[in-house]
Design a binder for these strands. Structure first.
Lengths: 118, 118
DNA sequence: CAGTTAATTAACTATTAGGTTAAACGTACT
DNA sequence: AGTACGTTTAACCTAATAGTTAATTAACTG
């Protein structure tokens, strides 16, 4: 795996379990066992997923007695969002083209309408 | 690797070579050799990267004589953008909090101001 | 038809990812 | 001190990634 920040972030996001964990954390802090609960997967597996998320900077952890509560950290997602901006025109553009097309259709309809009226 | 669309897309993006290829294609259509040119990497390696991008739906290809020109397809990026929306509040929120803080400071300033006036 | 150019496929190698079970660690409870 | 709870580490397995070189396919060119 590449080690640049964006690659590490994308790699971390390329797993449904990890994305589900992030979604859970979006609701607020949670312990490892809590996070593991929805999955048919051993605790060490979840622990590894968390480590991946942590290395990507998407999760931070504190210590509280024997628990290691996890929190969402959104900065890398912000970076992804920023990276996306250079491509946004490509789907907005096609919407614009669809818009153009629809407007053209409407214009056509108007013409026909006029024709029918005359 | 997981086979759901989003995982496949993120995995495809988790490589700097592939992201550079996308950036190149954002400038317009290009052949495999053209795309390979900036990299110190064999052609088959690029071919494989292109296949990954193609499977993720990020690139489409046509045939033109012995060339197989590649084009950017942005739909999966749109999906990523959409997925991100559920997290946008997390970095906008912190800006809001900064906003709140600044407003509080201002309010404080006003109070002081009033005090001085009275 | 022979040769050249563009790209892919095949076969191989090394590394990493994602999972397992079993053992160890750290803290709290009695 | 001993036990229970929450979590991580160790050791291992399998499959997938990312790269290589060599051979192959496909289309144009003289």
């Amino acid at each position: 795996m590449s080690t640049d920040q964006l690659s590490v972030t994308f790699a971390a996001l390329a797993d449904p379990t990890r994305r589900a964990i992030l979604a859970h954390l979006a609701q607020g802090e949670a312990s490892v066992t809590e996070l593991a609960q929805p999955f048919a997967m051993s605790l060490p597996a979840i622990s590894k997923h968390l480590k991946v998320l942590e290395r990507a900077g998407l999760v931070t952890r504190s210590r509280e007695a024997q628990w290691r509560p996890c929190r969402l950290a959104a900065e890398p997602l912000k970076d992804v969002d920023h990276w996306l901006t250079q491509y946004r025109q490509f789907w907005e553009q096609s919407l614009d083209r669809l818009d153009d097309y629809l407007q053209e259709l409407q214009a056509e309809e108007k013409k026909k309408g006029r024709k029918h009226k005359t």
